[in-house]
């Protein structure tokens, strides 16, 4: 007699925990007309809760040492490496060939490591000491923008999602990200990876559901500092950019395409969610060239 398999319940990931959607609603992504799983159809309130969690985590995450953030990203890669098989299986379920699925998982791991490596370097790249006139020391450094609300690429269920997440958090931001609607399985399994890595709860929050339903809420939430939209729908982009105006959110648009391409290994993805802070301080001028106060 064959064993009856246990079907996995996919929940959402908020503040380091796996709640069900508060709305109690589910949807079924399909491949070949076959339902893949029951996924949470996240609501506006789930998003709100995720933003609260992201805000709570933001200061602590931003103020961790760059070295420590780097290690945490690396740790995610390590844990993901150990669970490769599960991701390959899920990608296959969502329509990928096994070879492509393997490559996508491998690249996801590599991408985490790529951005892990940037954590303690991008600031050096983007910081300047500015030669101002007058006796002042003047320098500019990047600082995280804050909370980024992101729509992950629809077509790239794992690698596209991972690319966005790691480029956002490498720079000290926290994020709330909506997974691909049609390919959400890996996103929640990736959340399980996150939960067993050393990522503090709230730094990454992952929702599943319908992009159209959540679009306006992502754009209008006053405590979100930036919005990332992966896709090309002109109406979506216009709506988001209009809504973003009220609190001057930074909006960034990325493609919904081929995240296998090496161009997505790119430090400027980190700078997309950085603010430049410039600091001035006087330099005392005594002695030396005979200033003679």
């Amino acid at each position: 007699m064959s064993r009856i398999a246990i079907l996995k319940t996919y929940k959402i990931y908020i503040g380091g925990k796996f709640p069900r959607t508060e709305s109690g609603r589910f949807y079924q992504p399909k491949f070949d007309n076959k339902a893949l799983a029951n996924m949470c159809l996240s609501s506006r309130k789930d998003f709100r809760n995720a933003v609260v969690a992201a805000r709570k985590a933001q200061g602590g995450w931003a103020h961790k040492s760059a070295y420590n953030r780097s290690q945490i990203l690396y740790r995610i890669a390590e844990v993901l490496e150990g669970r490769k098989a599960q991701f390959v299986a899920e990608l296959a379920l969502q329509g990928s060939t096994e070879a492509l699925a393997k490559e996508e998982v491998n690249l996801s791991i590599d991408r985490l490591i790529y951005y892990a490596g940037w954590c303690d370097k991008y600031i050096q790249m983007y910081s300047t000491v500015n030669p101002v006139s007058g006796s002042y020391f003047n320098f500019s450094v990047p600082e995280p923008t804050g909370i980024v609300a992101a729509f992950a690429p629809e077509k790239s269920g794992l690698l596209g999602l991972v690319t966005q997440i790691c480029s956002i958090i490498a720079g000290g931001n926290t994020c709330v990200i909506l997974a691909s609607e049609s390919k959400p399985l890996c996103a929640i399994t990736f959340a399980e990876v996150l939960a067993t890595s050393d990522v503090p709860g709230g730094v990454i929050n992952i929702l599943t559901g319908n992009r159209a339903e959540l679009l306006t809420h992502f754009g209008s939430h006053m405590d979100v500092n930036a919005v990332l939209y992966c896709g090309a729908d002109k109406n979506d982009i216009k709506t988001l950019q209009e809504l973003a105006v009220e609190s001057m959110k930074r909006t960034r648009i990325r493609e919904d395409g081929d995240y296998f391409d090496a161009k997505h290994e790119n430090p400027y993805y980190i700078f997309d969610f950085q603010e430049t802070k410039t600091t001035w301080h006087p330099i005392e001028q005594i002695a030396g060239a005979g200033s003679g106060y």
Binding site: S135, Y136, P282, I283, E284, Q285, I286, Y293
Partner: peptide, 13 residues
């Protein structure tokens, strides 16, 4: 007198 007010020389200039 070890705790007299501080002076910022650049501000003075």
């Amino acid at each position: 007198f070890f705790d007299t007010p501080k002076i910022d020389q650049v501000g003075i200039d």
